[in-house]
C-alpha cells in the first residue's frame, strides 16, 4: 500500500489548496442553505446563488414582465 503523495498532501493543506477551499465553500453553502448571508458578499458565486434564492423564496411576483399576447 502506498503512502499519501507528499505533494498532494502539501497542496491540499496549504492556504488556497483544495482542502481549504472545500471547507470555505462548505461554510458558504451551509449559510446560504440556512438563509444566512455569507460574509464574503464580493464572491460572484454567492451573489448569483443569493439572487436565485431570493427569487424562489419570494412571497409573490407582483407583475408578469413578459407581455401577454
Amino acid at each position: 500500500m502506498s503512502a499519501l503523495d507528499p505533494y498532494c498532501q502539501a497542496r491540499s493543506l496549504r492556504p488556497g489548496g483544495e482542502e481549504s477551499g472545500v471547507v470555505a465553500d462548505d461554510m458558504i453553502c451551509r449559510e446560504l442553505s440556512r438563509r444566512e448571508a455569507p460574509a464574503d458578499s464580493g464572491d460572484p458565486a454567492v451573489r448569483l446563488l443569493q439572487a436565485l434564492i431570493d427569487d424562489v423564496d419570494q412571497r409573490r411576483s407582483s407583475v408578469s414582465i413578459t407581455p401577454s399576447t
Binding site: A51, D55, R60, I65
Partner: peptide
C-alpha cells in the same frame, strides 16, 4: 394593495435570478 416588491425591484431580481439559472 400589493405589499410585495415593486416592478423595478421585481425586474432586477428576475434578471439576476435568470442569470444564475443560465450559469447553473
Amino acid at each position: 394593495p400589493d405589499d410585495g416588491p415593486g416592478p423595478e425591484e421585481t425586474v432586477v431580481r428576475y434578471i439576476e435570478a435568470e442569470h444564475a439559472r443560465r450559469l447553473l
